[in-house]
Each structure stands twice: as C-alpha cells, then as structure tokens.
Design a protein around this nucleic acid. Sequence first.
DNA 1: TACATATAGTTGTCTATACCAGTTCTGTTT
DNA 2: AAACAGAACTGGTATAGACAACTATATGTA
Lengths: 241, 241
Amino acid sequence: MLDKRSPMPMYYQIQEDLKQRMDSGEFVPGTMIPSERELSEHYDVSRMTVRQAMTNMVNDGYLYREKGKGTFIAEQKIEQPLQGMTSFTEDMKQRGMEASSRLISFETIPATVEIAKKLNLDESEDVFRVQRIRSADQKPMAVETTFLPVTLLPELTEEIVQGSLYQYVEDKLGLSIEKATQMIEATVADDHQATLLEVPRNSAVLMIERNSILTDGTPFEVVKSAYRADRYKFISDIYRS
Amino acid sequence: MLDKRSPMPMYYQIQEDLKQRMDSGEFVPGTMIPSERELSEHYDVSRMTVRQAMTNMVNDGYLYREKGKGTFIAEQKIEQPLQGMTSFTEDMKQRGMEASSRLISFETIPATVEIAKKLNLDESEDVFRVQRIRSADQKPMAVETTFLPVTLLPELTEEIVQGSLYQYVEDKLGLSIEKATQMIEATVADDHQATLLEVPRNSAVLMIERNSILTDGTPFEVVKSAYRADRYKFISDIYRS
DNA sequence: TACATATAGTTGTCTATACCAGTTCTGTTT
DNA sequence: AAACAGAACTGGTATAGACAACTATATGTA
C-alpha cells in the first residue's frame, strides 16, 4: 500500500491516499472513515502516524473528528473560495462551472510606470503582457491581463503560459508564491472590455488586481482581471481576531 | 509550573503559558523560543507533548519552525487590512481618512424572503433596518444598510446603533461575532444611491455584503454597503495554502 | 417495558525512546 | 588565517504502549 522506502513521509503518503479515495468517491461527505486503529493496521504504521496524517487533514478541512464516535469526511466547503489562493479554474470548479481559457495576446512590452513600480523594475524594462479570456461554461467571465518581468522568466513562451505557469516557476526558479495583495474595485466596461465580455458598454465590471510576491520577496506578477458583474461575485470568509 | 491534576490537557496549558509569555514581552517577534527538548524538561512533560502544543501554535500563526535552527515567534501580522474583521472607522483610519456617519433611517420591517433566509428567520418575522451614510473626510463614501433580527435584540434603539453595536451585543448577549461571509460585486448606482453618494446616475458602485455569525452559530446581521467606486478599493492580503 | 449496567468501540492525551536530516559551533589541521 | 571535519545542537518522523473520556450497543434486572 505505502512505500516504506520512499523519501516521502508515511503520514504524507497516507494523506494522499485518503484524499485520492475521497476523490474516487469511495468516501462521500458525512461518511465515517475507518478508525485510527484500523487504519494503522491497514497501512502497517503506528496509530500516532495515522493520527498525524489525520490531524493535518482535519486542519485542512478535509475531515472532522467526534470523540467517541469516529472521524468523518467533511462537507466540501464551497463558501470559502479565496481563503488560500485560488486559480480561476479552481474558483469556477467550486462554483460548479467549467472553466476554459483563450489566449488573446502574448507580447513583450516596456513596463509602464505603474507596472514597473509594482514589479520593482526600472522604468521601461521589458515585461511580458499576456491577455486571456477566461470563460465559465463556455460564456465569457473575465478578461485577464498578466504582467511578468522578462528578467525573471527570460525563456517564457506562449506554450508555458497556457500550461501551468506556477508549476513552471517552481521548477525553474525553485520558488513559489508566498502571498498576494488583492485590490477589488468597481468600474464600467470600456469598449474593449465590453466587446470581449459580450456585454453592453457601460455595464458594471468587477476589477480584481492581484500582485503576487515570491517566497524570497521578489514581486512576481501583476494580474488585472475584469469580471462580468452580472455573472461574478467575489466571496470570502473572514474571521475575528 | 503546570497543573498535572488539572482537567485542562498539558499541551493546552503549555500553549496558554507560551502565549502569556509572548504577551508579557518576554518573547518578541523573531525571537527563538527554547528548543522542544528544553521545554519538555522545563515543563516536565515528554517532548511529544511539547510538540503538540507547538504544532497547534504554528497552525494558529503564533510560531514558525525552521528545521535545524529552532522555533521562532511569528511577526504580528499587521499587514492584513481585512483579514480580521475591520469596522468602517478602522478601515478609513488605516487609509488616512477621518470617518463619520449619519443615520438616515431606523425602522422595524417584516423580513423579506432573502433577509429571512440569511438571518435564519421565519418569513415576515420582524427585523430592524438601519440605514446610514458613511463618510470619509466629510465626503460620502458608502450607503450602508443593516438588517438585524428583532428577536435577538428586542430593546435596540437608535442611540445604541449610533454607539458601538458590537459592544452592546457582547454585553447583552454574552456573544461576539465569530466570522462573516463577504460577497463583493459591482453594480451601477440606482437613483437613490446616486443621490446619497452624490455621484451621477449609472456610476459604478462596489457592493459589499457581509453576513455575520455569532460564536454560537446564530446569524447576527446582514450588512449591505454601496461604496463609491471612484473613492474606494477593497484591499486584502491572501496567503498560500 | 423501562431502566440501569456492563462492554466494546471510538478519539483524546501522554510517555519514553529512537533515528533522520538540516544547521551551527568548535576544534583541528592545513 | 582559512578550510575542513566532527560534535552538538535543532526540528522531523515514527514506534509501541498506556490510560482517560466519550458514545453506542447489548444485556440483565426491576
């Protein structure tokens, strides 16, 4: 079942296996999963190791425990789309829609003053400018424009941006995104946006700008998205303290 | 140091002690706290018990660990504008503006279907409807409409809502707000909003709706705010995983 | 039938130990 | 003085076992 010689810790392998069994439909929300003792026998590890895996999954919201009863599969939490950073695809999936994406343009341009400042570049240094239409259930949802520093990703191509950019960055730079600052505002659609989003001019659009920072503190990207206000609400949960 | 006969688990007592030592200034952000082995000797418990306390505190953001180096006090996360719940007044203060507020109406009305559902009331049960103009630097910033269940706060008055409502709720009910779900969307101003916000009709407005839940799970309020899009951006920081 | 009691199952807490992997300091050698 | 090697630290992973607290079910008794 598990690979004891793998460099991956046992508790991690158990987590992945349990998640996989959840995805496959073996466990549905509300189901009680086998007890800690049963799982420790099944995976041939100590109960504490199973507990470590399960504690992580409880913290991540996959499971919940009830003392004296057992451990259960948690409901899929639809209501917190943006707690951790969510991609457009994940976001739409959580909303029960199918995401698709169409590349409109991919070009290298000198940074504007605004973008240079946000990416911590000298003025007129080159940046990639990638523009996409993001669709949900085959209807336009947002126009997304991404700015990336050329110096950081000199070998970036169209193919890469259409794949998993974040995966590429991790492999290429050994860094990942640590956090982002997000700004949300309301505007009315300009002609260009109206055409791409297939809405009347002067419709309301929700502008979301995300500035992402890598784990070493380098600004990584500026993403400006214009969402159709008639189709999209931004939802988040906030907690006290 | 710790009370071994207390019904409180040892790891919990350790957490509380460490937090108290942080509050008292013994540990400041960035400081390395004693190693797990030292603490286990100090508290006279096993290292695993210390680890359980520390793992919880890492998950809660009080500490962070670095393999081979030690465990450190985390920075107080000030840089999260809307991570914790912020009042309009605090929000404006952080933006360097002076907040003021004018009560427009305070009335009792039967709940609409939407509000009844969100406040978990029977249809047509009474709710308070409080409408305010929120201003920053003496210029209108938002129109805020709050819905509160009458059954929860039967003695609510105009004076109270103009003071600290949250303080009143805590004293009156012994409960406080645990979390809120927030929905943000873009619309165009209707006549009423345009007049109150002193903007042209068909200007863009940022609608923020906040549904707050008390610590016992009771829905507490629905707040709908219409912000002037030319003056207000919603800003938040988000973190990976 | 109704109520108490046992009992077997669950998670919760805790111990004592062991080894691994990464970091830092220290003493020795060059 | 600089470079290396190793010791002594750090947290990370894992074991085997114990008892407590809680829940559900079955059993016996009034």
